[in-house]
């Protein structure tokens, strides 16, 4: 069998088809949420959420429950608690988030070392195992993608005003508290449901890189969000195909393709005209 035939054969395997669909959905979701998260300076927040997810998974394993089902409420509660802590603390946000994510990661790894059945699975948790996603996982991610897209589309005006300036948003009647809360909850759900496919260490790349690449090449907001989602989904599919063809680990392959996309965007990006370029 030639490498080409082997690759085509791989594409016909149900696990690979699920992985491609999973990559498309997870990547699009990351790009969609990331487009707002990056502008609101929540990149590091999503990183902290991703790292803390390992603690949620560990909790599930220690309690003998389905880790994904434990992770969903854990991630949401954790995100809300961290968000409250960040809002009501004098410490710089990046320092606080650093403390949270490094300590939750350390706690989770130490706890996992006591669970014999998971000693070998830590790499999968850290870097993802997209080839292991089930139809149930895909269904949940699809539902979340539909829900998140609907929410962001319906509240587009409020989301943009909130991103621009909180006081301007409030003056226009935007319920800032509610939208911040909902966005954090959706971001936490995205992290919780994507962890299996993407891994704890790489989840923030799914949120941040496509959005940053899109920001570089987009000359309007109407373009920016769909391009970020498209880049996220497209890079994930390309990365998975590359990983299948070259027998590379799937999660890191996707991130490498995202990086290539970002570098391409950097090269293609129009040079910033800067304030007042046209007088």
């Amino acid at each position: 069998m030639s490498p080409w035939e082997g690759w085509l054969d791989l594409l016909q395997q149900p696990f690979m088809q699920r992985a491609l669909i999973g990559g498309l959905l997870t990547g699009s979701l990351g790009g969609l949420l990331g487009s707002f998260a990056v502008l609101r300076q929540l990149s590091f927040f999503s990183d902290a959420l991703g790292h803390s997810a390992l603690l949620g998974i560990t909790l599930g394993i220690l309690l003998g429950l389905n880790p994904t089902l434990v992770l969903i409420p854990f991630a949401v509660l954790f995100a809300l608690m961290v968000s409250r802590l960040v809002d009501n603390n004098r410490l710089p946000t990046d320092a606080l988030l650093n403390i949270i994510y490094s300590s939750s990661l350390a706690l989770a790894v130490v706890a996992l070392s006591f669970v014999d059945s998971y000693k070998g699975g830590i790499a999968n948790l850290l870097f993802g195992d997209i080839l292991g996603v089930s139809w149930l996982d895909l269904g949940l991610i699809l539902l979340l993608l539909i829900g998140a897209s609907g929410y962001l589309l319906l509240s587009r005006r409020d989301q943009i005003l909130l991103t621009l300036d909180e006081s301007l948003a409030r003056s226009r009647g935007v319920d800032v508290g509610l939208h911040r809360l909902l966005f954090i909850v959706v971001l936490a759900l995205v992290v919780a449901l994507s962890i299996k496919a993407v891994g704890v260490l790489l989840i923030s790349a799914f949120v941040v890189i496509p959005a940053c690449a899109s920001r570089l090449v987009s000359n309007s907001f109407n373009l920016y969000v769909p391009v970020a989602a498209g880049l996220g989904g497209g890079c994930a599919v390309l990365g998975l195909l590359l990983s299948g063809a070259l027998s590379l680990p799937s999660g890191p392959s996707v991130v490498i393709v995202q990086l290539a996309g970002f570098l391409l965007a950097l090269a293609l990006a129009p040079r910033s005209k800067g304030p007042g370029a046209a007088g």
Binding site: S155, R157, I160, S220, L223
Partner: peptide, 27 residues
């Protein structure tokens, strides 16, 4: 607007936000 430089928003899009009524609606 401290974040204005980061948001890829055209002038027409921004002014349009002033027209849109509050609440949820399809854009």
């Amino acid at each position: 607007f401290p974040l204005v430089g980061r948001v890829p928003l055209t002038v027409a899009e921004f002014v349009g936000l002033g027209w849109d009524p509050a609440g949820l609606r399809w854009p």
